[in-house]
């Protein structure tokens, strides 16, 4: 048995790094969101003016609402493809399931920056998509419209974050006991009915988790919108970032960051609720 002193020093040892480099910075970040800037200097007072600025100025909350819409679009596209793909993998013979799942997840291990660059060269004016469409006489001349548009951001993010949708849905499908689907068909349900009435409801926690994962990834990604979105890439992540760079208004940026985290926390909480409700 260890004495109390060594127990406490063991706690300090394991808690030190995350406390100093996670907890303290997070507290400092939140504290900063209540500070003010006067003559280019950060003044540590307590003010809600940063949050008020966010709510009052349409250039801030407008971009925020717009970005939420964009992230929702990315999540829904991932779901539309992710649910059938996860279901397809689940229906494969057991020995093929994990290799095929791995094929879907593998792109996560390909460089993020390289994906961005590749999508630029696929969608650009001289890009492969334009060349393909011109060569097949679907369009007369290359279109500028593919790159630097809202659609380019949605397409790039949806393809980058897609594995985060498939993974939770598949893991959820895997947890459905075979006896349940069998019982359903023994009782005379068609395959479609079994899917609608048994499989789909039991997959909901995975679907919600996937939606939230993709949504949060998309919300926090401030580089993709800039790189493939051009002028359309002025998303909330960029707004937060620019307060720390160009504008140099850290307290304002911190308050935007807190808003971002609150949205994410609410979403993660929602996932926790659905997965608690639906236990097999």
């Amino acid at each position: 048995m260890m004495n109390p002193v060594s127990r406490i020093s063991l706690f300090v040892l394991v808690a030190l790094v995350p406390s100093v480099f996670v907890l303290l910075p997070t507290i400092a970040f939140v504290a900063n969101s209540f500070f003010a800037v006067e003559n280019g200097q950060i003044v540590p007072t307590f003010t809600l003016s940063n949050y008020a600025a966010f709510l009052q100025q349409p250039e801030y909350w407008g971009v925020f609402v717009n970005t939420l819409g964009l992230c929702l679009q990315v999540s829904i596209i991932c779901l539309v493809f992710g649910l059938p793909v996860a279901w397809f993998i689940w229906r494969l013979p057991e020995r093929n399931r994990y290799p095929m799942l791995f094929v879907v997840i593998l792109p996560l291990f390909m460089s993020y920056v390289v994906k961005l660059f590749a999508f630029r060269s696929i969608l650009g004016l001289n890009g492969f998509l334009n060349q393909l469409l011109v060569a097949s006489h679907l369009i007369d001349k290359p279109q500028m419209a593919f790159l630097f548009s809202r659609d380019a951001i949605v397409l790039t993010q949806a393809s980058m974050f897609f594995p985060y949708m498939v993974l939770p849905i598949f893991l959820n499908l895997e947890r459905i006991p075979h006896s349940l689907t069998q019982a359903s068909s023994d009782l005379g349900a068609s395959a479609g009915m079994t899917f609608r009435e048994v499989v789909l409801p039991l997959t909901m926690p995975g679907v919600v988790a996937g939606l939230v994962f993709v949504f949060i990834m998309s919300l926090g990604d401030y580089i993709t919108p800039q790189m493939v979105g051009g002028m359309m890439g002025h998303t909330f992540g960029r707004v937060v970032w620019s307060q720390f760079g160009v504008t140099f208004n850290w307290p304002l940026g911190a308050s935007f960051g807190v808003v971002l985290v609150l949205v994410c926390a609410a979403l993660v909480g929602a996932v926790g609720m659905t997965s608690r409700q639906q236990r097999i």
Binding site: S19, A28, V240
Partner: peptide
């Protein structure tokens, strides 16, 4: 407490973890 501070950077968007550390 320990679990929360260990998982926190993994659940928070990296832009926030990064900015908080930068500020700190």
């Amino acid at each position: 407490f320990l679990q929360t501070i260990i998982y926190l950077p993994f659940v928070m968007p990296p832009i926030i973890t990064g900015l908080a550390l930068l500020l700190f």
